[in-house]
Write a protein that binds this DNA or RNA. Structure first.
Length: 138
DNA sequence: GCCAACGTTGGC
DNA sequence: GCCAACGTTGGC
């Protein structure tokens, strides 16, 4: 089991929209590091869903439904084959975990979310993942 | 292949 | 709105 964190601007695709749609193809990633992380995903891996720009907090947990496959939203002229994964919502955090809170927590401040703030798909350790859930459900 | 210029992301 | 971080582009 692996854990990841995916970022989305609420104005583009919010957690609420995701809940309503019940499933989405996570695509549009145009960064190699992020793409590599997408390719690492296996069915049933868990994802933290983070709202960037507005909110700046982890709002929910999602699950990987399918491994990465071709992202058809990429331009034909693009020589690189970009990928996406199908994901479904698992649970909404009782208490969203804000970035400020993450930075103040001894364990969570080491997250790649903080260290590589521009990367839209980052890996999360088991310890970090469990820490987020623990704090969110207190 | 280097690097300056420029564009984008995202926190503040 | 500003700016730091970082990716991309293009001239040489």
């Amino acid at each position: 089991m692996q854990y990841f964190l995916i970022k989305s601007e609420p104005s583009v695709y919010s957690w609420d929209t995701f809940l309503q749609e019940k499933q989405t193809f996570w695509s549009g990633v145009r960064n190699h590091q992020a793409k590599n992380n997408l390719k690492l995903m296996k069915k049933d891996d868990l994802l933290l869903f983070y709202h960037s720009n507005e909110g700046k907090e982890i709002v929910g947990v999602a699950k990987v439904l399918t491994e990465a496959y071709k992202d058809d939203t990429a331009a034909e002229t693009d020589k690189i084959e970009w990928v996406g994964v199908d994901v479904v919502p698992v649970e909404t955090l009782k208490k969203p975990i804000t970035l400020a809170f993450i930075k103040a927590d001894e364990i969570l401040k080491e997250m790649l979310l903080v260290k590589q703030s521009r990367l839209s798909v980052t890996t999360v350790t088991k310890q970090e993942f469990e820490r987020v859930l623990e704090l969110a459900n207190m």
